[in-house]
């Protein structure tokens, strides 16, 4: 890609990561949530791949690490759900409390949001990685 596209994507993608983090952390207070945050997180990496090429991005964001993040956050979600069984039922919100409208409220919802966001973002990025690996090997 040209220099203009490279510079613009380099400039835009950190802000997209920030926006994704905001959507994840404030999902229980403002519109948003884990899925949207994850998709934006994945798009920030996919933008870099489309502008800089798969081989250059692969050196910074390794496929093994992306895969590890995806699996680890999936396990976190399931463990969080199973931990609710101790307090009552599957997916029971056992960390209730905190002032309404503050960042530390909503119980397990923020943790769940972050885990789902990382999982979706890593999953989409991993899909793109695998497809590109197949295209490049041909």
């Amino acid at each position: 890609m040209t220099l203009i596209v490279r510079t613009t994507t380099k400039l835009v993608s950190p802000f997209m990561v920030t926006y994704a983090a905001y959507l994840m952390l404030y999902g229980h207070l403002s519109p948003g949530g884990g899925f949207q945050a994850g998709v934006i997180l994945a798009v920030s990496v996919i933008l870099l791949i489309t502008s800089h090429g798969y081989k250059r991005v692969k050196r910074k964001f390794r496929l093994k690490e992306v895969s590890l993040i995806e699996s680890a956050s999936a396990i976190t979600v399931i463990m969080l759900a199973i931990a609710g069984i101790i307090f009552g039922s599957f997916f029971y919100n056992f960390l209730r409390g905190g002032e309404f409208g503050s960042l530390i409220s909503g119980g397990i919802i923020p943790i769940f949001n972050i885990a789902i966001g990382l999982k979706v973002g890593a999953g989409f990025a991993l899909l793109f990685y695998i497809l590109l690996r197949w295209v490049e090997s041909d």
């Binding site: 999902g27 229980h28 207070l29 919100n93 409220s105 909503g106 119980g107 769940f112 949001n113």
Partner: peptide
Amino acid sequence: ASANNVVTSIVFDYRG
């Protein structure tokens, strides 16, 4: 759910 956003509390709590 002790969350202000009702939509999120439905998606991530009631319908986890």
